[in-house]
Amino acid sequence: MPLATILRWPLLFCLLIGTLSACKKQQPPPTAPQARPQDTPRPRPITKPQTVLFLGDSLTAGYQLAKTEAFPALIQESWQKAGKPWKTRNSGISGDTTAGVLSRLSWVLKPDVHTVFLAIGGNDGLRGTNLDSSRANLEKIITRCQKAGKTVVMAGIQLPTNYGPDYRKRFAEMYEQVAKAHKVVRMPFLLKDVAGIPALNLADGIHPNPKGHQIIAKNVLAFFQEKALFP
């Protein structure tokens, strides 16, 4: 009856909030096929930590794609083919921010993690956040990872052109400066050769499609090689 409909409006708000907070999420299908090592409660010594943890947002998660199509899974595939012992774990959450990553560090910093590949901050920028706090969060994340004995690799992210040169510059500089200050290996731009090219992106023009992810994977692998990581 009518009233019920009116009164159910608030439901819309709640959905709205769900949408906003998850603004660009929607990630892989639930068919996560990865043979992920079940939580090993045993301390480190037993297995040599050989997992690379990809910490990030929708770009890492593979927005609208299957988890197998996202670049972390592609990298593991490549390593597997090459017979390398390294594994990847995708810890990307669509819509996540630096503050979000900071707060979930304890959930993801498992003993088997060897290296943390950090690609976060895009959503901070898209929301026009005051970058001082994003910078502080990044620094805390890196410090905590390093304190836990993990190697940190940080990928740079760029904002869409419409955010204006001033803000974009400040944003890009943030990564540069943090990397320098914490002696972190920095990959200048995660979406190199992909961003802005319609054929490699989804219709929204901002999230890579499967082809885009293949290029990202290739670039990341090349970057690892260049920096002599993961032999």
């Binding site: 760029q158 040169p165 974009r168 510059k169 500089e173 990564y175 540069e176 731009f189 802005g196």
Partner: peptide
């Protein structure tokens, strides 16, 4: 091209007066 803060690989073709 003025707005690229780092050695970005992204070509920029838009006009900028900065």
């Amino acid at each position: 091209i003025a707005s690229k803060p780092s050695a970005s690989s992204r070509p920029s073709t838009h006009p900028s007066s900065l």
